[in-house]
């Protein structure tokens, strides 16, 4: 009897330990705010993150198995689609907005340029089902995964049984996306006192704090609010932004403030990808502001900088480019799970 008890205890410990080894702790970078995402409801584990990563890179999520999340959110581009102004879905269908860069999503309180999506777990539903993006349905994705030779085993590893549900699939995708933390730019090293700004960068930092920080607040370089930054309305799109969601005229032409991190990799800029270069963006703030009742008050007078100042500011913005983020193999195409020529 005693023996049995001891064996049971040992087995229990072994089981507990084996789970412990795969659990992951989400590390909050020093000095950063508390994440918005509730990790208590979807605790990170190595196997779930890996499942999410596999799904992220697998075109099986699209109707014709041609397009994966990574098609429009590639790591080399800080998880956006470089050189496309508007998103690009299956059968070369063109969407109506610029695909956003994915990083530091645990701190984001809403998703999409207009905040249409209120939680990271349900974000993936939008591109999966949008006819201009992946044009697929969740039940059909589940059917495809069930008959796939790898997924039942991966769900088993992640969840303890091989049942594939919408909730599990979506939460695994969240887990991978939550790990996409970019906090190793030069700026971060300077803040950690491991590096120093050059004189030009330092001047640019001062200009940033003066002109940009009210919306693009440190350390995330976004405050996730919705603002009208004075862009003229592109008549081919007539995109009213946040107002389409809230139906409030006070939200007309407002879009979510994007981060200034990793700008080197994420061009073109703005919700419709209208600017290819940072210089164009700065010129817009200096001379292009369109006055409308909802214009952000900070922009009423425009942001004028001479060419020297622009140079300093751009030098500072370059310190927000995180090379380790775009080259971290843990975020990349999971070659080991795919056969040659599969995925992406």
């Amino acid at each position: 009897m005693k023996k049995l008890l001891v064996i049971t205890c040992m087995l229990t410990t072994a089981v507990l330990l084996s789970f412990k080894t795969i659990k992951m702790q989400f590390a909050i970078p020093q000095g950063w705010p508390k994440p918005v995402y509730d990790f208590g409801k979807n605790p990170l584990s190595y196997n779930k993150v890996e499942l999410g990563r596999m799904l992220f890179y697998d075109p099986v999520l699209s109707r014709d198995s041609s397009t994966s999340c990574a098609s429009c959110h590639s790591q080399y581009n800080a998880f956006t689609h470089v050189d496309h102004d508007l998103s690009h879905g299956i059968n070369d269908r063109i969407g109506k907005r610029n695909s956003p860069a994915l990083m530091n999503l645990a701190w984001s309180s809403s998703f999409m340029w207009d905040g249409a999506v209120n939680h990271l777990d349900v974000q993936s539903l939008a591109p999966i089902t949008n006819p201009l993006e992946m044009d697929e349905s969740l039940p059909n994705v589940i059917r495809k995964l069930q008959s796939n030779k790898r997924y039942p085993a991966m769900f088993y590893k992640a969840y303890g049984d091989s049942i594939i549900t919408g909730q599990r699939l979506l939460q695994a995708l969240s887990q991978f996306m939550l790990t996409l933390v970019s906090n190793n730019a030069k700026y971060d090293s300077v803040m950690r006192k491991q590096a120093v700004f050059t004189e030009n960068e330092d001047k640019g930092y001062t200009l940033y704090k003066q002109h940009c920080a009210s919306c693009h607040a440190e350390p995330l370089f976004a405050n996730y609010s919705f603002e009208n930054n004075g862009l003229y309305v592109d008549k081919t799109l007539n995109d009213s932004g946040r107002m389409a969601i809230t139906k409030q005229p006070t939200d007309s032409l407002k879009f979510k403030v994007p981060t200034l991190r990793n700008l080197k990799y994420t061009y073109p800029y703005m919700h419709d990808g209208r600017f290819k270069h940072l210089g164009q963006v700065l010129n817009h703030y200096a001379m292009g502001i369109q006055h409308a009742p909802t214009l952000a008050p900070q922009l009423r007078k425009g942001v004028f900088m001479n060419s020297e100042e622009k140079f300093y500011l751009i030098s500072f913005l370059a310190t927000l480019n995180d090379k380790s983020f775009v080259s971290n193999p843990a975020f990349g195409y999971p070659q080991k799970y795919f056969a040659t020529g599969e995925g992406l």
């Binding site: 979807n42 939680h119 349900v122 969740l138 589940i142 549900t165 979506l170 939460q171």
Partner: peptide, 10 residues
């Protein structure tokens, strides 16, 4: 976020 059972987005 995403819930299970009858509330599953699927």
């Amino acid at each position: 976020g995403a819930h299970g059972g009858d509330l599953d987005p699927e």
